[in-house]
Simulated assay, not measured.
Amino acid sequence: MKKLFLLLMFVISNVPAAEPVILVLGDSLSAAYGIERSRGWVALLQDRLQQAGYPHRVVNASISGDTTAGGLSRLPQALEQFQPDILIIELGGNDGLRGLGNDQTRDHLDQMITLARAAHSRPLLLGMMLPPNFGKTFTEKFLQIYRDLAEQRRVPLVPFFLEGVADRPDWMQGDGIHPNAAGQPLMLEHVWAQLQPLLDEEMAGGMGSAHSPTILK
């Protein structure tokens, strides 16, 4: 029996652990709209992880045109299927463009954070800013959704995902909304600045970054 026990322990200890998963739940900005998927920031993230020696696999569950309502409806199944260690939420832009209401957008994002944590997944929130033609007051209130939510729920935040990209016409597609391939590396840098501390905490076995906000200025 002792030999059998030792044999079983040897087999169990040599079963390769499942790759930790980073799930990206987003819209066209993460679905590589209008460019080759391999040149989108999500694909670049997988390359960066490998180069930096992290074992994580990136799953891109982004759909062009998606809203926070759509993301919320898809999230439970995605969490069950992929069991991600980290959930990157990049949604809300289409809510604002369609005038769906700030309260609704905030509520949906809040529910996604709750679902993620209930599934032992650490959320990372990517904030969006609407085009200036929507008016200063409206755009500021929309941006504040992400800041308030990150502070209240203590979630790491990239306040404006397209910082330094949206104001570069040569980095944007003809519609003025979607970045081209040239803008994707900077988008990745914004995400990486907030994602890497979560990765390092995870690798060290800690959970501190999941509960303390880190905001990119």
Rank of each mutant, 00 (worst) to 15 (best):
L195N: 00
S209E: 06
L91A: 03
L29T: 00
S121E: 05
A69C: 10
S62I: 12
V58E: 02
W41H: 09
P159C: 10
L6F: 14
P185V: 13
A69L: 12
D167H: 13
P197F: 13
Q81D: 08
I88Q: 01
L6W: 14
A182R: 15
Q184R: 11
R117W: 02
V15P: 12
G208V: 12
M128L: 12
P76Y: 06
I22A: 02
E19L: 05
Q173S: 09
W192R: 15
A193C: 11
V21W: 01
G208E: 10
P123A: 09
T214Q: 14
G208K: 14
L195V: 14
P84E: 02
Q83F: 04
P123N: 10
A119R: 09
P16G: 10
D200C: 05
L186S: 07
Y146S: 09
S212W: 12
L49C: 05
Q51L: 13
V59P: 01
V42C: 05
D27Y: 07
G65Y: 10
I12V: 11
L130M: 08
M128D: 04
R74C: 06
G101D: 10
L75S: 04
K2P: 07
S64W: 02
G206A: 10
Q152L: 14
L79P: 05
A52E: 12
F82V: 04
M203K: 12
L124E: 00
L23M: 10
L44Y: 03
Q104C: 08
A18Y: 09
G183K: 04
L115R: 13
I88A: 00
L143T: 04
Q83N: 13
L72I: 06
I177N: 03
G96H: 02
G174P: 00
N94M: 08
G164R: 11
H108G: 01
G208N: 11
I89H: 00
R168W: 07
A31V: 07
M129R: 14
I86K: 00
N60E: 08
L45Y: 02
L7R: 13
I145M: 06
N180R: 04
F160N: 00
D95V: 06
V58Y: 05
E19N: 09
Q144W: 06
D170T: 04
P179W: 00
P16M: 11
S13K: 08
M112Y: 08
D66L: 06
F134R: 01
G26A: 11
I88E: 01
I113C: 06
R122H: 11
P159H: 10
A182Y: 08
G135D: 09
A182N: 11
M203E: 15
